Amino acid sequence: MRYSLLIFLLALFESCDNSSGSTRPEFTLPEGYSTERVTRVLLSEDLEEISGIAWHENELLAIEDESSIIYRTDPETGKILKKKKFEKNRDIEDILVRNDTAWVLRSNGNLYRVVDFREKDSHTVIFDFPIAESRDLEAIVADIDEPFIWVFCKVCEWDEDPSRSSFFKFDLGTMKFDSLPAGKIEKSQLKGLLANSALDKLKIQPSAAAVHPLTQEYYLISSTGKWLMTLDKALKPKTIHLLHPSLFKQPEGITFSPDGTLYISNEARDGRANLLIFNYQP
């Protein structure tokens, strides 16, 4: 279902609002994507709390934050093809795939390694997060060049306030977390990328992460404040984009197909959970 009517109404609303002299934020997407080229797919009730997605072998893997199940879905229809229970019910937040192994993030920072997740006899190993302080981590992504996984804080006690998000390295060679943050994404790094009026209100609280397969950039998305950020290989911000809340009601998952098609999942909020699909046209 195309969003042409919604885009027209949004444009009309913003035009009328601007004519009254008020200032509204500018809603954009990274280069190559447009809200005029979006398809929306409604998801089943099983995925009302969808919290992470990942592309794998022409399927879209999905998780939701109330049951430890990997859902294999059809990326065009959202239909659930198969389910895989990998752990007792936990607060599950993000997922990525390397070969036939799924890596799933729990909100406390623990990583679940689900080996052969497509098979009946899969095997799950848990790697505990190294810090016991109050924390909520919701985004993971594989390093572009090295055998690492990066894990991002949404709200962690040691970050002190929403102006920063620390991230940690999990080494796939040693299968261990570093005990200290590898770095931070801070609001101060975004000066010049966003108007000061919008930057002042921004909270650095990422919900999900992915790697663009063609540009080799990291993408971070946040449901808090509705923004999408691109970062270089050193995890330094390049661009940041405010997302229109009418389209991105609660964006909690992000991934790409090999041709650069962008998928963003929204949890159900006053309606049905959905998948937004953006074709890549650089």
Rank of each mutant, 00 (worst) to 15 (best):
T261I: 12
P213N: 02
D259A: 03
Q250C: 12
L228T: 02
A198K: 12
K238S: 11
S223N: 08
L194G: 01
L243A: 05
L242K: 09
K203I: 10
E186G: 10
S197D: 08
S188E: 14
D259S: 03
A210T: 01
F248N: 02
L247E: 11
Y219A: 00
Y219T: 03
F177V: 11
L220K: 05
D259N: 11
S222F: 04
K226F: 03
K238P: 04
S188G: 08
E186Y: 07
S197F: 02
S265H: 04
F177A: 09
W227N: 09
L220I: 01
K249W: 13
A198P: 00
A234F: 07
T230Y: 13
I221K: 05
F248T: 01
T261K: 15
P213V: 06
H212P: 05
L243F: 11
S222P: 10
T239E: 14
T174K: 15
P206Y: 01
L247W: 05
S197I: 08
L231G: 07
M229E: 02
F256K: 00
A198D: 15
T239A: 12
K238G: 04
T261L: 09
W227C: 07
Q216V: 00
Q216Y: 02
D178C: 05
P258N: 11
E186F: 02
E267F: 00
G192F: 04
E267R: 07
T261E: 09
F256C: 04
T255G: 09
E252F: 00
L190E: 05
P237T: 03
E252L: 02
A209S: 10
G192T: 06
N266R: 01
Y218M: 12
L193F: 09
A208E: 03
D178A: 13
Q216F: 05
S207T: 11
A234T: 12
K176M: 14
D200S: 14
I204N: 08
E267C: 07
L235V: 13
F256H: 05
D232W: 01
L180K: 14
Q189M: 14
T215I: 12
D232I: 02
P251F: 09
I204E: 05
Y263G: 13
G260N: 14
I185T: 06
L194V: 02
G260C: 10
M229K: 08
L199V: 05
P251R: 11
Y263I: 10
T224E: 15
E186S: 15
L193K: 15
H244V: 00
L214A: 07
L243G: 05
M229G: 09
G260R: 13
G260L: 10
D200C: 03
S197Y: 06
L214M: 09
T174H: 06
G260D: 13
G260K: 13
Y218C: 08
L231C: 08
A198G: 04
M229L: 12
S207E: 10
K191Y: 11
P206A: 01
L243M: 08
A210Y: 01
K201D: 06
E267M: 03
T261D: 07
S197R: 14
K238N: 11
V211G: 10
K176D: 14
L247N: 06
K191G: 08
G192K: 08
T239D: 09
Q189R: 11
